[in-house]
Design a protein around this nucleic acid. Structure first.
Length: 651
RNA sequence: CGCGGGGUAGAGCAGUUCGGUAGCUCGUCGGGCUCAUAACCCGGAGGUCGAGGGUUCAAGUCCCUCCCCCGCAACCA
């Protein structure tokens, strides 16, 4: 049996000191897209993501929260996994540096480095801020030598530390980078490393700490813990069983084909990491790809600026696929990009709703209309048909070329060329004219088949980026066999089975009202508490099922607000005078904080009319107004359409 | 001279490796079509390609000088 080619891809392991945001999501979705693509094209694929859970910052955060560090990170890890699930990220392994097997492997690695004299014990000297318990370099300090974090005066402190002999390997690495231009991508990053760090000369790297204890203990010198460089970077191989008894995965997948990193951690992944791998006799990853950052508008995302974007509210509104598409399409991978809600919404409307969604819908609608929803058997291909067919057949190669270069945006652009061409094809062939007579209908069979087949191609190609939409498209085309949705099925134009009933469903991507959505997203953000659960859904135990008879006991009616005012002596209550047509009632409602009474007069509201009357603050309230409660506790009155007559029964 | 990235139509970007009529998306204006999610298709307007100088038959693209913006200090992608 022939061995499949392997493809190992990693994201950085994230630091779980706070909720992950859209930047982390960007990297991870990119890795997922790549992994799905490689899997689809026949590679034996392995995809790693995870969390780097040690270090002083987490130790302090946990302390501040009054929690054990492990408990603290467990919670964030749980949220992180939920986020990946929400984003349809299918990793093969979620690596955590607090796993026992990792800890043991790190201890062995540390010992081995010491034994072969790559690590030595010495003292670390630096400016230390006692308040922050952190070392700073001279250049990091404020003018006057104060701590950049808290502004207090720092002191020169010595700490016993283990050091890795980076300098020993620097010439080897310079040579390696020069000999392997593909190793660091984009190439400008390689320049940066060579100019700034490698050529000026590397300093030996401090690889242990004694100032905190939340880390992998150095087993032969227990007052030290292994510092992040070794602890975190080596996860990429300990996850495969390096330094354990079971290392078949390591043999199978290492070296990685691609390691994705943000531009801020390029140095660690292209200098320290390769040197340490080399020192241990391991091969280097084929490529370290540094992508840019997602900026908000032109600003850095920053909690203090209040512009950090979190995916869950976006996914809740538009679905994971829309966000995945935007992230992969909007900016070239490698350069910085801007995230704006407006750009996202515009992409959803133009690319997804207008171009793709509408193409699918209009095609299916015509198959429905002219052939009773059954995909027709094509006849002889004419010139226009052949032109579209050739474009479709040429697509996979172009797509693969761009994907292999991690140019997701370009790859999608290629697919959208076929989307456009297909829309154009409809204009050229004018199916609605063909449908008018029998002669035209023969020709129409071919036209609609060609269209449906082009859509099948599109469905297959978008799978890595939009897995759900891909499936929906194929479902709507009535495809039931997986063989018709594989990469190999794109070798021939015509795999779509004729004579099968299509299954038209909901619009793939409904158009959105940009201005309205922008306002609502903005409102969502105000209510959202970034430190809280990323899925801002209050989980209350579901109420027990009721019988219809139970519902029948309730009388809901539409009422018109005749007057509304603050109830004197209460800051919560509004006093309503309501008309139900035949009768009028007085009702109190505890929504004064969220509604201005003046704006409510004349509105149609929903009243629970048969609730037992109750005296509140001396006023008899005859019923209850329905309102909705947001997760933040705010209350919003529910309104009925103006067309509804007052007194109308609701049921 | 610290290092890197960038300055191209109203907006967002590609094109610069290996000089040869300035391109894409959105927006805008006009037309077409009516199968479709007011969607789709065609066409137009709109740019001294940051400034100046140089090389060349020819420069957004090569060379020199200068100006401006952004990162390298993070919420660490």
């Amino acid at each position: 049996m022939q061995e499949k080619k392997t493809f190992y891809i990693t994201t950085p392991i994230y630091y779980p000191s706070a909720q992950l945001h859209i930047g982390n999501t960007y990297t991870t979705v990119a890795a997922d897209t790549m992994a799905r693509f490689k899997k689809m094209t026949g590679y034996d694929t392995y995809f790693l993501t995870g969390t780097d859970e040690h270090g002083q910052k987490i130790e302090r955060r946990a302390q501040a929260a009054g929690k054990d560090p492990q408990v603290f990170v467990d919670k964030i890890v749980e949220d992180t996994k939920k986020l990946w699930k929400l984003m349809d990220v299918e990793y093969d392994v979620f690596m955590r540096t607090t796993q026992p097997d990792h800890i043991q492997a790190i201890q062995r690695i540390f010992k081995r480095m010491l034994d072969q004299d790559d690590i030595y014990k010495s003292t670390y000297e630096g400016q230390y801020c006692a308040s922050c318990e952190a070392f700073w370099t001279e250049t990091q300090l404020n003018e006057g030598g104060t701590c950049p974090d808290c502004g207090k005066v720092t002191e020169l402190v010595q700490e016993e530390s283990y050091f890795f002999r980076m300098s020993k390997y620097q010439d080897w690495l310079i040579q390696y980078i020069e000999d392997h231009p593909e190793f660091i991508q984009p190439p400008s990053r390689a320049n940066e490393m060579l100019q700034n760090f490698l050529r000026p000369g590397l300093q030996d790297l401090c690889v242990s700490r004694t100032t905190f204890s939340w880390g992998v203990p150095v087993d032969f010198d227990p007052k030290h813990v292994v510092y992040v460089w070794i602890d975190a970077l080596f996860n990429y191989v300990t996850a495969l069983g390096y330094m354990s008894e079971e290392d078949t995965l390591l043999k199978r997948y290492w070296p990685a084909q691609v390691q994705l990193v943000g531009k801020d951690i390029v140095r660690f992944h292209t200098i320290y990491w390769p040197i340490m791998l080399h020192a241990l006799g391991l091969p280097l990853p084929k490529q370290v790809f540094a992508h840019g950052w997602l900026l908000f508008g032109n600003d850095k995302m920053s909690k203090s600026k209040g512009n950090v974007v979190y995916p869950p509210p976006i996914v809740a509104r538009y679905g994971a696929d829309a966000l995945r598409y935007y992230l992969m399409r909007e900016m070239p991978f490698g350069a910085d990009g801007n995230y704006t809600n407006r750009a996202l919404l515009n992409r959803i409307n133009s690319d997804l709703a207008n171009d793709l969604g509408n193409l699918v819908r209009r095609t299916l609608a015509m198959i429905e209309k002219y052939f009773d929803g059954v995909i027709p058997q094509p006849g002889i291909y004419e010139e226009v048909d052949i032109a579209l067919r050739e474009k479709a057949l040429a697509l996979p190669a172009a797509f693969e070329r761009e994907m292999d270069a991690l140019q997701f945006s370009q790859a999608l652009q290629e697919v959208w060329r076929l989307v456009s061409e297909s829309n154009r094809y409809i204009d050229l062939t004018q199916p609605w004219v063909l449908g008018r007579d029998d002669a035209g209908k023969e020709r129409l069979k071919t036209v609609l088949y060609v269209l449906a087949e082009a859509i099948r191609f599109i469905g297959v190609l978008i799978y890595p980026v939009m897995p759900t939409t891909s499936k929906r498209i194929h479902q709507q085309l009535g495809i039931t066999q997986d063989a018709h949705t594989t990469w190999d099925s794109l070798q021939a134009f015509g795999a779509l089975p004729a004579g099968v009933a299509i299954q038209p469903g909901e619009a793939l991507f409904p158009r959105v009202d940009v201005e309205k959505e922008l306002a609502e997203l903005e409102a969502d953000k105000g209510k959202e508490k970034p430190q809280s659960d990323p899925v801002p859904v209050k989980k209350e135990p579901a109420k027990a099922q009721i019988a219809f008879d139970d519902f029948e006991k309730i009388s809901l009616k539409v009422a018109r607000v005749l007057s509304c005012e603050h109830l004197v002596g209460s800051d919560k209550l509004l006093k309503f005078r309501l008309s139900l047509g035949q009768e009028e009632r007085t009702v109190l409602s505890g929504i004064a904080k969220y509604h201005d009474p003046a704006t409510l007069v004349g509105r149609k509201v929903i009243l629970l009319t048969n609730l037992a009357p109750r005296k509140i603050r001396g006023v008899m309230s005859e019923g209850m107004l329905l309102s909705a409660e947001n997760p933040d506790g705010s209350l919003h009155l529910l309104f009925a359409d103006d067309d509804v007559v007052e007194g109308a029964e609701i049921g």
